[in-house]
Computed example of a mutant assay.
Amino acid sequence: MKWGWSLICKRRFRGIIFDMDNTLLSSRIDFDRMKQEIFDFLVSKNLINQETVLDVHTVSTIIQKAKESRNYDDKANKQVWEIILDIEKEGMKDACLEPGVVDLLTKIYSNYILVVLTNNSNEAAVSALKEHTIDKYFDYIVTRDHVVELKPSPGGVKNILKKFDLKQKEWLLIGDSWIDGRAAINGGISFLAYKANEQELKEKNIEYIGNINHIKEVFEFI
């Protein structure tokens, strides 16, 4: 038995935030395609410079950059999110749970505050969690509909911190990407990487307490 369970009163964290795509669920969302299509659309509308270096941006930062244009209006914003939603829906069709997720959630949900933080729409996130019958384990779900800026912005983390009466040091965010790590760091909480690209984490200056290859390894850190 792990020390976190035998000495539950001494556990390191009290709240755990999970990224959804490729952390809880093995989704097939093509984020590279999403970024490219958003970029192409914004360039076609003269809302972003074609010379913009795509590699240094996420979908979120590309949109934020486009919003700097005085021509970025409600119509353009609606079209952007329609592109994103279509790709999300396509990618979630064959999504399945990451191995060990149900076992982990079953064992920890009564002793920890559990939250999902995702850049997906509320519609897509709730639907996916319900389809795989794991929605019941979570106390709160934060999607892009709840924040002004997406991860890597810490907006979602700050939303969660305001919701629950826990200290920053009592929260752990688990995710597969550097954008999860940046959201955690800028939100003042710890980050545990899951199957993350360590070279990318290093390049992005992401501090993390570990990089696990199986979700069951979460027990070693909480």
Rank of each mutant, 00 (worst) to 15 (best):
K2D: 14
W3T: 13
W3V: 10
G4E: 08
I8H: 05
C9R: 05
K10D: 10
K10C: 14
R12N: 13
R14D: 07
R14P: 00
I16Q: 06
I17Y: 01
D21H: 06
N22G: 07
T23Y: 08
L24R: 03
S27R: 08
R28G: 15
F31Y: 14
F31H: 05
F39P: 00
F39H: 04
D40W: 00
K45E: 15
N46V: 02
N46K: 13
I48R: 04
E51W: 09
T52N: 02
L54W: 06
D55K: 14
V56W: 05
I62G: 02
Q64I: 08
S69Y: 09
R70N: 13
N71R: 07
D73V: 01
D74C: 07
A76F: 06
Q79G: 00
Q79M: 12
W81E: 09
E82K: 10
L85R: 11
L85C: 00
D86N: 12
I87N: 04
K89A: 09
K89S: 09
G91E: 03
A95P: 04
C96L: 11
E98L: 11
E98Q: 15
V101P: 06
L104D: 07
T106M: 03
Y109S: 15
L114A: 11
V115S: 02
N119T: 08
N120V: 02
N120R: 02
S121K: 00
E123Q: 12
A124D: 13
S127F: 15
K130Q: 15
I134K: 08
I134V: 13
Y137N: 06
Y137P: 02
F138T: 07
I141D: 02
T143G: 11
V147D: 06
E149D: 14
E149K: 14
K151R: 12
S153R: 05
K158D: 08
N159K: 14
L161T: 00
L161P: 03
F164N: 08
K167R: 11
Q168V: 08
Q168D: 13
K169L: 05
W171E: 07
W171F: 15
S177P: 02
D180H: 01
R182M: 14
R182Q: 14
A183W: 03
A183D: 07
N186R: 11
I189W: 06
I189R: 04
I189S: 06
A196F: 12
A196L: 11
A196I: 10
N197Y: 07
N197K: 10
N197A: 08
E198P: 02
Q199A: 10
Q199T: 15
E200L: 14
E200N: 10
L201E: 07
L201N: 09
K202V: 06
K202L: 13
E203R: 14
E203W: 03
N205V: 00
N205T: 04
N205Q: 12
E207Y: 10
Y208I: 02
I209Y: 08
N211A: 12
I212Q: 03
I212L: 10
N213M: 12
I215T: 13
K216D: 13
E217F: 04
E217I: 05
V218F: 06
F219M: 11
I222L: 15
